[in-house]
Amino acid sequence: MEHALNIALPSSGRRVPCEQCPLRAMPHFRAFETQELKFVASFKTGELMADTGTTLLAEGANSAHMYTLLSGWAFRYKSLPDGRRQILNYMLPGDLLGLQGSIIGEMEHSVEALSPLVLCVFQRDRLDDLFSNHPGLAFDITWLASREERMLDDHLLSLGRRTAIERAAYLIAFLHQRAAAVGPDGSRTLHIPITQAHVADTLGLSIVHTNKTLRKLADRKLIRWLDRACEVLDVDGLMQIADWDGLPERKRPLI
């Protein structure tokens, strides 16, 4: 059964110049060389704003654009013909969207906004220029693709070998660690904007099983479940349950 998609279209206006990008000031991201910054500023054609639930990229479609997430959350997923979906990964500020479509031509997954978003828009037909004339940026894109593969390896290991409570603990700790690197400082509470349906579609569990599993984590005072968000109370406790050491701390590229 086909569903109508609320698909966002790029705007042409630039509200945040690359030279003043708030992400560039974060210690999590590597600094651009002068020529790299100049190219990326010309590579960017505008910005896109999208509401929660908007489809940014659709499986099977072609897109003339790539995006860098400037603010907000999104998720990648694949669907079966009957509408069941598997969430593959989550996107946070600084992540690159649409590279697969730019290289292969047709998207093999969909991307949906998990919260209100602002994205930087890039023309995919200038990707050849980037690879030909800016080897540092070309390496950055390769690095980002490799990082995504590594995260998917970890997710597959979790789905295949961890118990339900270990899977849930891993997922929430993983999202918390990623969000903490690009989110507010420790003076503000960090909320992960996911529902129990998102958790179920990520972990391959039923809603009932997911609810029982998350309740166990809440009973241990590790998380607090809100209406459409999760507050992490003890990330170290979650990591201990999942037997997960966390993501490596290193500077990462930003396109």
Rank of each mutant, 00 (worst) to 15 (best):
D219T: 01
D236T: 15
E149S: 05
G98T: 05
V199H: 00
W73Q: 15
L37W: 08
K216H: 00
A218M: 07
I7A: 13
I207Q: 00
R188E: 15
P135Q: 09
H155R: 08
V121D: 06
L247F: 15
R162N: 09
D227H: 01
T52L: 15
Q20I: 04
H191D: 06
A180K: 15
F32Q: 11
T55L: 14
H134C: 03
D125P: 00
A74N: 11
L171T: 07
P193I: 00
E231M: 13
G237V: 10
H155T: 00
L214N: 11
R224Q: 12
L190V: 13
L96Y: 03
Y67K: 09
E148H: 06
I165Y: 12
H209D: 15
G237S: 13
L217D: 01
S110K: 05
M66G: 06
C18R: 01
A197Y: 08
G46W: 10
R24I: 02
A197T: 14
M91S: 05
I104Y: 00
A218K: 09
E149H: 04
R24Y: 02
L114D: 03
K212R: 08
F29P: 07
W73I: 10
A4Y: 04
L152F: 03
R84F: 14
F39Q: 04
D125V: 01
H209I: 13
G83S: 02
E59V: 12
W73R: 15
G72Q: 10
S42P: 07
V182Y: 13
R150H: 05
G83D: 02
A41W: 06
V208W: 00
R178N: 14
A74L: 12
G186W: 08
T163F: 11
E166N: 01
